[in-house]
Design a protein around this nucleic acid. Structure first.
Lengths: 148, 148
DNA sequence: TTATATGCAAACTTTTTGCACGCCC
DNA sequence: GGGCGTGCAAAAAGTTTGCATATAA
């Protein structure tokens, strides 16, 4: 698995400017192999080993820049808010139950066939990095009915 | 294809309370076979034949209620904002190119295998009504490189 | 040195909440 | 009639922008 280091290498190779806040955000995302909200990222940086608090503005701007470079994914997790993750982390996805809110983690392999088909049929390289699929979980299914 | 009528029938059969604002929102969504933002919905209702403006509050609340009933899908379309659609409309999905912004419409059938697998493996009934998949389109693929 | 990133404050957009009133069943 | 939905106003979240300062290359 790739770490924040390879991301940083890539950025330098590309000639992008690497500043302290940028490095901190990348490290925060790299260290936690989780999806983080803006707030999580700030917290992480502040707690972890640096006692530096980045402004919202900066975190937003760094994330936008990383997204443009294709290094970060953004996912709307509904209730939880919008979360970000390094695309180099092992991809995974979530099933989210609309009724009870339970979340189930999915392996990325599940999307291999779909990726293949999109590439074959549309020439489209899908970046399915962190998908959130909503629906009804097993338990909640046992009492719902649906419209005609 | 199902119209707002069958949605209304369903709601009444379920014993849910049907008010004027609720009916207007359902009709707006049913008439435009598109995905609408909150603002679109209000506009639609005001222009279309009623000159009644619903408050944001009410539209949000009606949509939340419809989502809970499983009658409406919600999709974050990035730039465009969050859009809503009656789930009774024929499902379709979008490929969105991160580079040039092109959008490609997908048939729903593409997701049949995935749905089947999620149900089989996880007992999860996925509600994939209006998915947005980001990536690189055919044209833009021909010049991109990616980090190691 | 010089272009570019950052922080602050404030503006903006989107969504949620409390409460009095009004309407559907 | 009574519970539930609606509108208003205001607050709370979430995100963006302008500008002076700081910093990487």
């Amino acid at each position: 698995m790739k770490t924040s280091d390879s991301v940083i290498d890539y950025i330098q190779a590309k000639g992008e400017r690497l500043t302290v806040p940028r490095r901190l955000v990348i490290e925060a995302l790299g260290q936690s192999h989780e999806h983080l909200t803006i707030g999580n990222i700030q917290q992480h940086i502040q707690e972890d080993h640096h006692d530096h608090l980045l402004s919202d503005t900066t975190v937003y701007r760094v994330l936008q820049w990383l997204k443009e470079l294709g290094l970060v994914s953004q996912t709307d997790m509904g209730q939880t808010g919008t979360v970000y993750a390094l695309m180099s982390n092992p991809h995974h996805h979530h099933l989210i139950c609309l009724t009870c809110g339970a979340t189930i983690t999915l392996e990325d392999e599940l999307f291999t066939p779909l990726r293949g088909q999109l590439l074959r049929d549309y020439g489209f390289e899908a970046r399915i990095d962190h998908m959130a699929i909503y629906g009804q979980c097993r338990n909640c299914l046992n009492r719902k009915s649906k419209p005609e």
